[in-house]
Design a protein around this nucleic acid. Sequence first.
RNA 1: GUGGCUGUAGCUCAAUCGGUUAGAGCGCUGGACUGUGGCUCCAGAGGUUGCGGGUUCAAUUCCCGUCAGCCACCCCA
Length: 425
Amino acid sequence: METPRGIHDILPDETPKWQGLEALIREFAARYGYREIRTPPLEHTEVFQRTAGETSDIVEKEMYTFQDRGGRSLTLRPEGTAGVVRAYLEHGMAAWPQPVRLFYIAPMFRYDRPQKGRYRMHHQFGGELLGAVLPAADVEVLSLPIRLIQTLGLTEVMVRLNSVGDQKCRPRYIEALREYLRPHRDQLCADCQRKLEVNPLRILECKEPACHRIVEGAPRITEYLCDECRAHFEEVKQRFGLLAIPYTEDPFIVRGLDYYTRTAAEIHSGRLGGAQHQILGGGRYDGLAEQLGGPHTPGVGFGLGIERLMLVLEAEKLAIPTATRAAGLDIFVAAVGAPAEQEAFRLLDRLRTAGLRAVGETTDRGLRAQMKQADRLSVRFAVILGEQELSGRQAGVRDMRAGTQQDVPLDQLVSYLTTAAANGA
RNA sequence: GUGGCUGUAGCUCAAUCGGUUAGAGCGCUGGACUGUGGCUCCAGAGGUUGCGGGUUCAAUUCCCGUCAGCCACCCCA
């Protein structure tokens, strides 16, 4: 038996990295006033169908969808925003003080062909700011992961910005784009010919050389933005300048999800070898709540790929800060002989109750083997209990770093070790 | 979903032209050191050669299928 394709275990040697990164993420979320939300990994299929867009790749071919025993269609979440907005509506967060700032660190599921940096289950750190219309909101949300990334020390990151307009101006642009593309229809790749009718925006992202050449001469969405969208985009850019965050404007990013309006943002790393160099995607989604049947609710957010971020950290040889003290052990209790083992068993309980981290021998190997075990566990102290020690109501305490050893009375052991472990920790 | 490369011990890898008992290092267990870790030496355990089928006297080796990883697409985080 093994894990399903593209889905992996995270083993104890790896979890400290995750915990360190998560701790830093939580710290940054807190600094920006974002509170954690935990939505279920499973939603009604409609939640994603109605928001991501019927013609999006996610809905068309990447969702893990199945029927439960009651015949309902459920889907493992392919992205985080729709579920958060669903929760916002379901729990009447519109009645909370606005705007509402939320974040999550959660697994996402997409039925893609796996590759390095692309998995069927991956984790995203997402932030959502709901109930805020102004451009300042867009820049606030996006600045959070950007500052986080900078703190981690990432160097070659590119922030790309675009505006995809709104319900008023986007349809006009789509028509203009279609009109421009129609005469070139025969030169487009098969996929794009299909997209021409269904979703011409996505042709902009096509990397097929032929399509790309045609797209070069296509009208730019920025030329079709309505006054409100134009002003919004201008202020977003101005505020990126205010924070001195470098970015490039990219008229061809449209994002794979249909719910985006106005601001669309991506962050790429130049240090990732493979094709999976995008580490963040995000933007504004003012129409999403309505698509879920709720009242108009402006929102803006991002999703940051944790696995991809870790790949970049590795590629740039950057250390992940360890937020808490290492999960290492303080003490190993070695025992020789049955009476000593009984005493050791009781001692372990006392040590742990006193807040120390201690393990003992669980088989009955010789002292030599037990000391070897203590060494490999990298404990600070080994406590040795045998017949000699027991008869004197004391124990040998060996400092594993110094290689020194002394006898300590049993009734003073806990306080002795508590003090000793605290010193020079 | 399309095309390609690769799967040998827990890990990293070897095994001649298809040839008889599939090896090494690290790691693990034990011993030298009967109650004291690290260093050294010795020994041991550990394998359905990813899985299934085919060709052959004989398959880790050749062929087909399948599963998984990787690479390029598609797309995305």
